[in-house]
Design a protein around this nucleic acid. Structure first.
Lengths: 212, 212
DNA sequence: GCGTGTGAAACCATTCACAGCT
DNA sequence: AGCTGTGAATGGTTTCACACGC
């Protein structure tokens, strides 16, 4: 069966709320309550889960811990993945300190930059390596995923090195399209684009004059 | 005609590349070349544009500057929108310094926090205000959009203040669902969720055992 | 020939509605 | 009674394919 990509990102969302609920000691939850927490309909939650199996008990709901563990398995989170951040500019720096990653099982295993000012310095306790050494350090540190926060000018070069090192997952914050082999998964997070879309919904004009 | 939300985010993307092309002095471009820059098919580009009019010349392509200006009009970017950042933690701090916003016509008009340690300090030249004064300062500074980077615990309270101040556009980085009136547009950027989705595509298992 | 604009077709995702279990 | 799991229906988006203009 073909599973929609949107289903996957919703599963990630559910996982976060289940994590929270399990910390609260909540034992069970219905699709309806879970849905209202994340701002969706109960149908959607059940359909999403149904792609992967039947996790609930009829007339009862879901066991929070069981469902959380099932989602961890599905999402590949059973063991903490080691992540590198490449590019110690503003954004990279902020992400090194972002607690949301560690809580959910990701470990920042190494950070990289190309500037002599930054290489060798420590950021939140992590030594910054030369991006030229990426392949060696990534292997040594068991890096499996990369968060890419470098400026547009060096994206292609850096991406080449990351792909060559065998990394298959890149979360790309730089505002350019990455060309990578199909076997490498890229998710783009584009802050300026998000703002522009938002601008349309509030201020944009729904139609434009035909060109003269 | 109903315009897909996805079309809008792609228009934002096209805009960025057109901006770049116009700086290079490129005069015209075909849907095919534009598509290859952003990693899409030419059909998609043409279809997206066709919702708003006919901007191209048959057998020739699009005039870069004309198309860029048309998109600016459509997206509501003709004049710089003033944006506030609420929450001067790691991420908020990084975003104050993020150049991508200013380049594309957004202005960081004010920054806010609730901590006495931060209120009154300057961040990248911008005075940090008490979030309690949000309404007054936002009016004074002509704030039209908000980037929300506060911790989960205070999200509801802060969101209430933002909505009460009449803001209609929120870019939410906090990992909780915002409940706001339908007239307020929220776009969520959830970094941990993006990483988890990525994890699925690389490490996740496509099916799970039925529950025992 | 090259490249746009656009209906029509194909594809994908969400919502509905209900059977079935506890 | 309450809630899940899922086929069927609906709705939305992308891709196709072709008429038309330069």
């Amino acid at each position: 069966m073909k599973i929609p990509a949107k289903t996957i990102s919703r599963l990630s969302l559910y996982y976060r709320y289940l994590h929270f609920l399990s910390q609260q000691g909540t034992f069970s939850i219905s699709s309806k309550s879970l849905a209202s927490m994340v701002g969706l309909k109960a149908d959607q939650v059940r359909k999403d889960l149904s792609y992967f199996g039947a996790f609930g008990k009829t007339g009862f709901g879901y066991n929070v811990l069981e469902l959380k563990n099932a989602l961890a398995r599905i999402l590949g989170l059973e063991r903490g993945r080691r992540v590198a951040i490449v590019g110690m500019g503003n954004l990279g720096l902020a992400l090194v300190g972002y607690k949301g990653f560690e809580v959910l099982g990701f470990k920042i295993g190494a950070v990289f930059d190309n500037s002599p000012n930054k290489i060798g310095k420590k950021y939140r306790g992590r030594l910054c390596y030369n991006v030229k050494e990426f392949s060696a350090i990534a292997a040594q540190e068991g890096i499996e995923m990369v968060i890419l926060t470098v400026p547009a000018e060096v994206v292609h070069e850096v991406t080449g090195a990351i792909v060559a090192a065998g990394i298959k997952a890149i979360l790309n914050f730089s505002p350019v399209h990455l060309s990578v082999p199909k076997s490498v998964h890229v998710t783009n997070v584009d802050l300026a684009t998000e703002l522009k879309s938002l601008s349309y919904f509030v201020f944009g004009q729904k139609t434009a004059a035909r060109n003269a």
